[in-house]
């Protein structure tokens, strides 16, 4: 099941990539579709980030993880390099847990 899901995703993704290359000149996407696709992508990723940061097993995720993610988000907004963002988020959560914060 797991391998089937990944292969389906892989084949589908490849088809979307090749489709655009091959259909050039024969396919017209409306301006609205062209505009909405990247918006939809960002909305999905933002939702994944928010649910992963704030929830666990359909309940709240405690304090340490959201706090760590908040630190990371703040740094990302200030254009700090990716590696620093990730390490700072993880470090904050780890230190808070070390201090006994759930």
């Amino acid at each position: 099941m797991l391998i089937a899901a990944i292969l389906t995703l892989a084949v589908g993704t490849y088809a979307l990539r090749l489709g655009g290359v091959v259909l050039r000149g024969r396919l017209r996407l409306s301006a609205r579709t062209r505009k909405v696709l990247p918006l939809a992508a960002t909305a999905l990723l933002a939702a994944l980030a928010a649910t992963a940061a704030l929830t666990e097993n359909a309940g709240p995720a405690g304090v340490a993880r959201p706090a760590g993610v908040a630190v990371g988000a703040l740094l990302a907004w200030r254009k700090v390099p990716f590696v620093v963002v990730v390490v700072a988020a993880a470090g904050t959560a780890a230190l808070l847990r070390l201090a006994g914060v759930p």
Binding site: L45, A46, L48, A49, A50, A52, A53, A64, R65, A67, G68, V69, V71, G72, A73, A76, F82, V85, V86, V87, A88, A89, A90, T92, A93
Partner: peptide, 8 residues
């Protein structure tokens, strides 16, 4: 916490 921070 690294995963959501990376996504953001």
């Amino acid at each position: 916490a690294a995963f959501p921070a990376g996504l953001i």
